[in-house]
């Protein structure tokens, strides 16, 4: 009887192996996809698919539940993002106009291709933009939100920025999980889908959002041209996106502002008259957001962004006036 049991054990092991083989052949179609092809498919899916995604965002010590709706109305993208906890906070995007509806201020619109606060804008745009700073590596598979997911790692080419990991739904290529990871492999920020529903019909909410008259896009022409500050050093892939001279929000001091981006990480650099109390040289928050300050005479250079603090320090130090 015991020998029988042993035989049964051996049999069950071999049949288990066969099952695995079957599953592998089923997913063989995906085997040929490179990491970049997966990301390209994601970019396409984020623009074309109609879906409802319930997700949570882990940011520092906060957990923010959100719902994201995306659809297409008359060949235009319409998206809706709602923060579910706390005071009502929504964002609506109709094509390239994003309107923020927040409880404490009148709705305002900006122009842009993606609602900020969810996936990086580049995910629904040109993935090639990231290739200067990152490598795409195919990872394993795991189950997210009840669906099989394919892991794609976006590894930084240098230690000047953080790494990212993204889990894509194997059926629809929509992102199910997005992690920002420090070089010590510490999780800094995470967006985690709880439920993904791919819709056949456009949800009525988006149809209404499309018909709704939204405030006009805020005018950006008042941005003044700043002085010609140059970075002597910039990590590969980073580019100056915006530069201007303006008044700092909630403050009466005017600053020179330069925005840098490598597609995933964004850095703001401010040049301002130094305050009475020197700011700390480097400061790091739990979600990876860092601040570095460099004081030059009576001017302080402040760099803010979700990159390692050493990068910010080096950037701030390398800023010179041409």
């Amino acid at each position: 009887m015991r020998l029988l049991l042993l035989a049964f054990l051996a049999l069950s092991f071999s049949s288990f192996a066969e099952q695995q083989n079957e599953e592998e052949s089923k997913t063989a179609a995906f085997e040929n996809l490179s990491a970049k092809a997966w990301l390209r498919n994601m970019s396409h899916a984020l623009q074309q698919q109609q879906f409802k995604l319930s997700l949570i965002k882990l940011d520092a010590d906060q957990i923010k539940p959100m719902v994201y709706l995306h659809g297409r109305v008359q060949e235009q993208e319409v998206a809706f993002l709602e923060y579910l906890n706390g005071p009502p906070k929504n964002a609506v995007r109709v094509n390239n106009t994003i309107t923020f509806i927040e409880h404490d201020k009148p709705p305002y619109s900006v122009s842009g291709g993606r609602i900020e606060g969810l996936w990086p804008a580049v995910f629904a745009a040109n993935i090639e933009r990231l290739e200067q700073g990152y490598q795409f590596v195919l990872g394993g598979r795991s189950r997210i939100a009840g669906r099989p997911g394919q892991v794609i790692r976006i590894l930084p080419n240098d230690p000047h920025r953080f790494g990212y990991q993204i889990w894509l739904d194997m059926e629809h290529f929509l992102p199910l999980r997005f992690d920002m990871i420090s070089s010590e492999r510490q999780l800094l920020e995470q967006i985690l889908a709880v439920e993904l529903i791919v819709l056949q019909e456009t949800p009525s909410l988006l149809l209404e959002a499309y018909k709704q008259k939204w405030p006009l896009v805020m005018n950006h022409t008042e941005r003044q041209q700043g002085q010609d500050w140059q970075f002597q050093w910039m990590p590969g892939g980073f580019e100056v996106v915006v530069r201007d001279l303006r008044r700092l929000m909630g403050s009466d001091s005017s600053v020179e502002y330069i925005a840098l981006s490598d597609g995933l990480a964004s850095i703001s650099v401010y040049v301002a008259r130094a305050g009475e109390t020197p700011l700390p040289n480097e400061l790091v928050a739990t979600n990876g957001l860092s601040i570095a300050t460099e004081r030059v005479g009576n001017v302080e250079v402040v760099a803010v962004g979700k990159v390692p603090p050493a990068t910010l320090s080096r950037l701030a130090q390398s800023l010179t006036l041409e």
Partner: peptide
């Protein structure tokens, strides 16, 4: 929020 346009 504002720079997404420029990035896009």
């Amino acid at each position: 929020k504002l720079n997404t346009a420029a990035l896009h």
